[in-house]
């Protein structure tokens, strides 16, 4: 069997947010919807200042509070470790968002089709582009995925539903790595199958400095971190993104 996991190497991460952008383009998420977030953090006072970066996708928890609270089973856990959202079933109660300790869920507050950055309704765009919103619309998101045959990939599907990182289920099905892991300029995101002993992700998880985010929450994440350290409460976020929903 396959059980996916991600390891993020904080000794390598440049805080560049390429992962954020790759995710956005791959998953067609609308404006204001960032499934990956990269914290840029600062601690201490001048001159004893330290800085750190922390990329934060959905943790795909094995003991996922978001799954537990979903009243309709739109949020569910798969055997391969993925925590997915069936956007056809989601009723938009946002309970998952509330229950998640990591703040990774994104609600479609407005109509996503009208919230794709620019007005793409341009008659001068070539035929094959016109009508694709956004123009980089990825057709993988129109189809069902997995044995469960549910529509779970991509973002910006409907007003009033919650979406979040899918571990790029559509790419995994194509035999590709998640978009963020692929693009990372310094290969700080390692993705693989923990059930495959030969997969390099296992060696990373076994590193002595590996840790999980918010272990006290008991969520058993499938995203692990190596290098660096868990952010403390005194870390201040600098260069915050400004989402407009």
């Amino acid at each position: 069997m396959t059980r996916y996991a991600m390891v993020i190497d904080l000794d390598r991460c440049q805080g560049c947010r390429a992962c954020v952008e790759a995710c956005k383009v791959e998953n067609n998420t609308p404006q204001g919807s960032l499934w990956m977030h990269v914290f840029r953090l600062e601690e201490g006072t001048y001159p004893s200042t330290t800085m750190s970066f922390l990329p934060r996708p959905c943790q795909h928890c094995d003991n996922a509070p978001c799954v537990k609270v979903c009243p309709v089973g739109a949020r569910y856990k798969r055997e391969d470790g993925l925590v997915l959202t069936d956007f056809d079933r989601c009723i938009g109660c946002r309970y998952c968002e509330l229950a998640c300790p990591y703040g990774v869920n994104v609600f479609n507050w407005s109509d996503p089709a009208e919230h794709q950055y620019l007005d793409w309704d341009d008659p001068d765009l070539p035929d094959e582009v016109r009508g694709s919103v956004p123009p980089w619309h990825n057709p993988d998101h129109d189809v069902v995925h997995g044995d469960e045959q549910r529509r779970t990939s991509g973002g910006g599907h409907a007003k009033g539903v919650v979406e979040k990182c899918t571990f790029c289920v559509q790419r995994l099905e194509r035999g590709e790595l998640p978009a963020c892991a692929t693009t990372c300029p310094v290969n700080a995101i390692i993705f693989g199958d923990t059930d495959d002993p030969g997969d390099s992700v296992n060696a990373e998880i076994a590193r002595g400095d590996a840790f999980d985010l918010l272990p006290e929450a008991g969520t058993k994440p499938r995203v692990h971190y190596v290098g660096g350290k868990h952010p403390t409460r005194s870390a201040r976020e600098i260069e915050r993104v400004e989402v407009e929903v």
Binding site: C70, P71, V72, I91, C93, R94, G160
Partner: peptide, 24 residues
């Protein structure tokens, strides 16, 4: 009124009811 998809809510809350959810 708090649901993003109110009509779906009316249907799905019953159709896919999950008693394990505290929401339930």
């Amino acid at each position: 009124v708090d649901l993003g998809q109110p009509l779906r809510g009316l249907v799905n809350l019953f159709r896919y009811a999950r008693p394990q959810s505290p929401f339930f």
